[in-house]
């Protein structure tokens, strides 16, 4: 009797039994892979966080002997002023890049100008060029002009972000319906008024993401300041961090704490405005 019942639903049930099994098999593989990759991505960062609060920090993964001393050292005068220099450089870069990019993006998006496509292609090309190639000619120029200091370096870093920002903003402004401008034109608004009263308010999320890109780009740059800033006291945080790393006895705890303080603004900017950033990024022509 048993064999007969087994036989009776062995065949038709086979598919039903099989289907969930392959699915769970897939789920197990998915979960395992994702978990392994999570460890791969997280472990170096977990180490950094633990080392920053461990009074006996090494580059091994240990349970920390809790202390806040590393953070205290990391915000001492010179370290703090390096962060201040980073802030100056990045702010200058953000303001210069975002403002120029916004004006240009509006024209490239909405107005009729000759040679628009070649211009756009040039901008796209520039956004892909590794900016390290600029150091030799820029160094020569800045040295001749006596500009080897913090503000010109900030302006230069703003310019290196400019091509991508133009693309970001152009794609954002493209999405603003032309009817709004037409209505403004009928009301005798000037180009300046249209830009300021119609486009600017609507483009704010795009401007935010472009500004974040500009800030992060300048905040993270190591090469330009190290070559283009003469005074040691004017060097930004990444250069100071590199100085720590190169010293004979590496103090992992302090470097980890300083790295975290240095990285935090960027992380906050990204996650705090991730929605806008994602919008700007997925619109960014270079990506799609």
């Amino acid at each position: 009797m048993q064999t007969s019942t087994e036989l009776s639903y062995n065949l038709p049930m086979d598919l039903k039994i099989n289907e969930p099994r392959t699915l769970t098999g897939g789920r197990v593989i998915s979960n395992l892979t994702a978990a392994l990759l999570a460890i791969f991505f997280a472990l170096p960062m977990v180490w950094m966080v633990l080392a920053s609060v461990d009074s006996e920090a090494t580059n091994q993964l240990n349970l920390p002997h809790l202390t806040a001393a590393h953070y205290w050292v990391a915000v001492q005068s010179e370290n703090l002023s390096a962060l201040g220099n980073s802030l100056i450089i990045s702010t200058v870069a953000t303001v210069v890049g975002t403002m120029a990019a916004f004006l240009a993006a509006y024209v490239l998006s909405k107005q009729h100008i000759p040679f628009k496509n070649p211009l756009l292609l040039t901008v796209l090309f520039l956004s892909g060029v590794p900016i390290s190639i600029l150091i030799v000619p820029i160094y020569k120029m800045f040295a001749a002009l006596g500009w080897l200091s913090i503000i010109p370096t900030g302006i230069l870093l703003g310019v290196t972000a400019l091509p991508f920002q133009i693309y970001q903003l152009k794609n954002f402004i493209d999405a603003i319906p032309v009817e709004l401008e037409e209505a403004a034109v009928l009301e005798q608004a000037s180009s300046f008024q249209i830009l300021w009263k119609v486009i600017f308010p609507l483009a704010k999320p795009g401007l935010a993401s472009a500004a974040i890109f500009g800030f992060v780009n300048a905040w993270g740059n190591f090469l330009m300041p190290v070559v283009l800033i003469n005074r040691l006291a004017d060097q930004p945080a990444p250069v100071r961090l590199f100085g720590f790393m190169g010293s004979n006895s590496i103090n992992y705890g302090v470097i980890a704490a300083y790295s975290i303080i240095y990285s935090l603004p960027v992380i906050v900017l990204f996650f705090g405005m991730s929605r806008q950033f994602k919008a700007g990024f997925s619109l960014g022509g270079a990506v799609k």
Partner: peptide
């Protein structure tokens, strides 16, 4: 998070 970190970090 790994992507947002600055290159020096």
């Amino acid at each position: 998070l790994a992507w947002t970190l600055p290159p020096t970090t």
